[in-house]
Amino acid sequence: MARATLLVLCALLLGGCASFPQSTPTTPDTAADPDDATAPDVYLDVTSRVSTPVRDESISALKASLKDAEAVSQFTDDPSQADRILDVRLEKKPRSPASAIGPVITGFSYFLIPTYSTIGWTMEIHGRTQDGDTFVATDTSGSMRFWLGIWLIPAMPGNSPTEIRGQVLSAMADDAVAQLTRSDRYFLN
């Protein structure tokens, strides 16, 4: 009994988790705004089916991307004061039921057998004018993968799930803003 307890404690102390982005985040080219156009006031209408930290991180990344691209004059809390309304929908990608088998095997083997898992999100944005006319619809997705196992302890520094999640969500926001600003009806003339 003491030996089993010792093995469990060793596995818990030595087990590691490392996360990696599914694909290398790239910053797409954003369309240059015309000289005679001005950035609109924007209202974000968010529908979320993700956890609160992911939602908050996604919205802050989207706001930062819009500001960096100079695609927003200001954010407003009142849709009647906005020039453009962005309906943002965040969802977690479904995983297959068989994906739960790997972590169970890893747990029973005291983290000696590594496991691979993926988590992903989608961000849909429908841009509409004050009149309700939809002028653009964007759809972007991103994912990250997890490796669990005792062999991953050297890979843990710099690969925490929180840091990687931030990189993935930021890349998704940059892609969505690039798609938004390519629309000829986004900027005010």
Rank of each mutant, 00 (worst) to 15 (best):
residue 89 R to D: 05
residue 11 A to N: 00
residue 38 T to R: 15
residue 83 D to I: 01
residue 172 M to T: 05
residue 92 K to M: 14
residue 112 L to T: 09
residue 168 V to K: 06
residue 31 A to F: 00
residue 36 D to F: 03
residue 21 P to W: 10
residue 103 P to T: 09
residue 160 S to E: 08
residue 13 L to G: 15
residue 37 A to K: 09
residue 63 K to W: 02
residue 6 L to H: 08
residue 77 D to T: 12
residue 103 P to I: 13
residue 156 M to Y: 03
residue 167 Q to Y: 07
residue 57 E to W: 01
residue 161 P to G: 11
residue 22 Q to A: 09
residue 46 V to W: 12
residue 30 T to R: 10
residue 18 A to I: 01
residue 88 V to T: 00
residue 83 D to G: 07
residue 99 S to M: 13
residue 15 G to S: 11
residue 161 P to H: 08
residue 19 S to A: 13
residue 161 P to I: 07
residue 107 G to V: 07
residue 52 T to I: 10
residue 12 L to C: 09
residue 43 Y to R: 05
residue 97 P to D: 13
residue 4 A to M: 15
residue 59 I to W: 01
residue 39 A to R: 01
residue 13 L to I: 09
residue 104 V to M: 14
residue 108 F to Y: 15
residue 162 T to H: 07
residue 74 Q to V: 05
residue 4 A to Y: 15
residue 113 I to G: 01
residue 22 Q to P: 04
residue 126 H to P: 03
residue 148 L to D: 09
residue 80 S to K: 04
residue 146 F to D: 07
residue 114 P to C: 12
residue 146 F to R: 05
residue 42 V to C: 02
residue 174 D to G: 05
residue 178 A to S: 14
residue 110 Y to A: 14
residue 173 A to T: 02
residue 111 F to P: 00
residue 27 T to C: 12
residue 43 Y to I: 01
residue 149 G to L: 03
residue 66 L to Y: 00
residue 164 I to M: 04
residue 168 V to F: 08
residue 183 S to M: 00
residue 115 T to M: 14
residue 91 E to I: 01
residue 102 G to K: 09
residue 27 T to S: 14
residue 172 M to H: 03
residue 114 P to Y: 12
residue 117 S to M: 13
residue 43 Y to F: 10
residue 170 S to R: 15
residue 100 A to C: 08
residue 49 R to G: 10
residue 129 T to Y: 00
residue 177 V to T: 05
residue 176 A to L: 04
residue 169 L to V: 11
residue 33 D to I: 04
residue 160 S to K: 06
residue 130 Q to H: 09
residue 175 D to H: 14
residue 19 S to N: 11
residue 124 E to L: 14
residue 107 G to H: 03
residue 77 D to I: 04
residue 103 P to V: 11
residue 160 S to Q: 06
residue 62 L to H: 06
residue 165 R to H: 07
residue 3 R to Q: 12
residue 114 P to F: 13
